[in-house]
Nucleic acid binder design. Structure first.
Lengths: 225, 225
DNA sequence: CCGGATCCGAATCGATACTG
DNA sequence: CAGTATCGATTCGGATCCGG
């Protein structure tokens, strides 16, 4: 451990030591959505070796970034400490930055409920959220219900069901429901209009109409620079 | 490479793949101060193996984060692309976050000119920069001249001399000049007042007076949460 | 001195199997 | 559900070497 130290006394170095080991930031990404069990994390990160997950959880606890809590009769939960939670703006900014470097997905790339949840959060522009919007998005197996109101964004995972204390599903039906593939990033990047996205089959509207999808596209955007 | 992919189609994952491999963010930290030669980077990161430095520079170039430019007769320079430069607020935020997890320095931890420069940038609070301040700080072998004016901060490395096109040294003398060790972080954290720092020998004023050091302590602070 | 490339042992990571 | 154990594949670290 000490042999692998960067050997510099500096805040950036300290942060790098705490959170940039392999897989660590992706674990944090998922925990930013909510507390998760060991098995949830493993499912959300299918390619992480179980011993590495175990090691990272231990290190992040020692670093004061996450904490392990025993739920009465529901098993163990990992959750961010307050200090760990303060990484949220940084992780979101990293997501916005990385979004612009995303190429086409590799053959076996997946989209998980947590990654899509965080992707929506990175793309969300509160300054356009004066008009509320209640929608449901479906990407592959993943299905999320999201509500924009009062400049805020609330997301609930419908499928796969959020563990184990997911927020309550809002009553009523969403005004807009649509399905999409990974190409939705072109809509978010603004290189495709809502109309074009529907025309080209990138997005399929299941409920609601085009103007509602246009509102979505305005609310969630990551433009270059 | 593909065998080591995280397998997720997500902006955060893309960013993580681009910049969180070992040493990458520290290279970026130093390049945020200014363009650097291979040898400069190696000196600023004494513990990086040369093959790793070489590999990271190659990967960061392929990722569009940095670029290699040939200077007329001065050798090669590595510099951030515009895209890479957009990591600045993220790296600064990481530095602020990591600052609060810094313990005491390990025996062989060092402070480099670039790391101290970035540390000052992370701690700088523009909202307190209405009154200008021109000072010189010395930590170990490192000596920086910094000028606060118009809500901005300019830093020039005096020792070791900045390569190869360091900004010109400002004319005249700084109003404040002081030396310190790593314990200066207590002054920046606000757990030590300027007076206490001088009393306890954490800071030695070489020129100027206590009120000027108090202004420094107000300008450069990272407080919890 | 600058800008790396090469080689090799040590540590980490990845995949699978196994356990309380 | 929540991990540990094992073992081959990769990467990292340290040192050396090399062409300009």
């Amino acid at each position: 451990m000490a042999a692998r130290s960067y050997g510099q006394y500096c805040g950036i170095t300290t942060a790098v030591e705490l959170v940039t080991e392999r897989w660590a930031l992706l674990i944090i990404r998922d925990l930013l959505v909510g507390p998760r069990r060991y098995t949830d994390l493993k499912q959300g990160l299918p390619k992480i070796p179980t011993n590495i997950l175990s090691a990272r959880l231990k290190e992040l606890q020692e670093g004061g970034v996450i904490r392990r809590v025993a739920l009465p009769r529901c098993g163990l939960l990992y959750e961010l400490t307050e200090y760990g939670h303060e990484l949220e703006p940084i992780v979101l900014a990293l997501g916005r930055w990385g979004f612009r470097a995303m190429g086409d997905p590799a053959a076996d790339d997946i989209v998980t409920a947590d990654s899509l949840t965080m992707a929506l959060r990175t793309a969300f522009r509160p300054e356009f959220a004066s008009v509320p919007l209640d929608f449901q998005i479906q990407v592959g197996e993943v299905e999320l219900r999201a509500q924009v109101a009062d400049g805020g964004l609330k997301i609930v995972q419908i499928a796969p069901p959020a563990p184990p204390v997911g927020g309550a599903l809002p009553a009523g039906e969403p005004e807009l429901r649509f399905a999409s593939g990974p190409d939705i990033r072109h809509l978010i990047a603004g290189t495709l209009t809502a109309a074009e996205a529907v025309e080209q089959g990138v997005v399929t509207i299941l409920r609601g109409d085009l103007p509602l999808l246009e509102r979505f596209a305005e609310l969630f955007r990551i433009s270059a620079a």
